[in-house]
Simulated scan of single mutants.
Amino acid sequence: MNYRTVFRPDLFAGKVVIVTGGGSGIGRCMAHELVSLGARVALVGRTIAKLESVRAELGGDAIAKIYSCDIRDATQVRATVGAILADFGHAEGLINCAGGQFPAPLRDISENGWNAVVRNNLTGCFLFMREVYVAWMEAHGGAIVNIGADFQGGMPGMGHSGAARGGQASLTFAASVEWAHAGVRVNMVQPGFIASSGLDHYPSSAAGTLRNVANHVPMKRHGTESEISAAAVFLLSEAASYTNGAVLRIDGGLHHNTNTSFYPLPEKAQSAPYIGVPLYKRPAVLDE
Rank of each mutant, 00 (worst) to 15 (best):
1 M>N: 08
1 M>I: 05
3 Y>G: 00
5 T>I: 06
7 F>P: 04
8 R>Q: 12
9 P>H: 09
10 D>I: 03
11 L>E: 03
12 F>N: 06
13 A>R: 03
15 K>C: 06
15 K>F: 04
18 I>H: 01
19 V>I: 15
25 G>D: 05
27 G>I: 04
27 G>M: 01
31 A>F: 01
31 A>T: 01
32 H>Y: 06
32 H>R: 08
33 E>L: 00
34 L>Y: 03
35 V>L: 00
40 R>N: 04
42 A>H: 03
49 A>F: 09
50 K>W: 00
51 L>S: 00
52 E>V: 01
52 E>A: 06
61 D>I: 07
62 A>K: 11
63 I>D: 02
65 K>W: 01
66 I>A: 14
71 I>D: 02
74 A>E: 10
74 A>L: 07
83 A>C: 05
84 I>V: 14
85 L>V: 08
87 D>C: 10
89 G>F: 13
89 G>V: 11
98 A>M: 04
99 G>Y: 01
104 A>R: 09
104 A>Q: 10
104 A>W: 01
105 P>I: 02
107 R>W: 10
109 I>N: 12
111 E>W: 14
114 W>Y: 14
114 W>V: 06
117 V>P: 01
117 V>E: 10
123 T>R: 08
126 F>N: 12
126 F>D: 05
126 F>V: 04
129 M>L: 08
130 R>G: 08
131 E>L: 08
134 V>P: 00
143 A>N: 15
143 A>F: 06
144 I>T: 03
145 V>N: 00
148 G>Y: 01
149 A>Y: 02
153 G>Q: 15
154 G>W: 14
157 G>D: 14
158 M>H: 09
160 H>W: 04
169 A>M: 12
171 L>D: 08
176 S>T: 06
180 A>I: 11
180 A>Q: 14
180 A>K: 13
182 A>Q: 09
186 V>P: 03
186 V>I: 15
188 M>T: 02
189 V>F: 00
191 P>V: 10
193 F>D: 04
194 I>G: 03
199 L>A: 05
200 D>S: 04
201 H>S: 13
203 P>F: 13
204 S>P: 07
208 G>T: 12
209 T>S: 11
213 V>Q: 12
216 H>S: 13
217 V>C: 06
219 M>C: 06
223 G>T: 07
224 T>K: 03
226 S>G: 07
227 E>D: 05
228 I>K: 06
228 I>W: 05
229 S>N: 01
229 S>F: 04
232 A>S: 09
236 L>E: 04
239 A>K: 11
242 Y>L: 12
244 N>E: 05
245 G>P: 10
251 D>C: 10
251 D>P: 07
254 L>T: 10
254 L>W: 13
259 N>A: 14
260 T>Y: 13
262 F>D: 04
262 F>N: 01
263 Y>T: 08
267 E>R: 15
271 S>L: 08
273 P>I: 13
276 G>P: 02
282 R>N: 08
284 A>K: 11
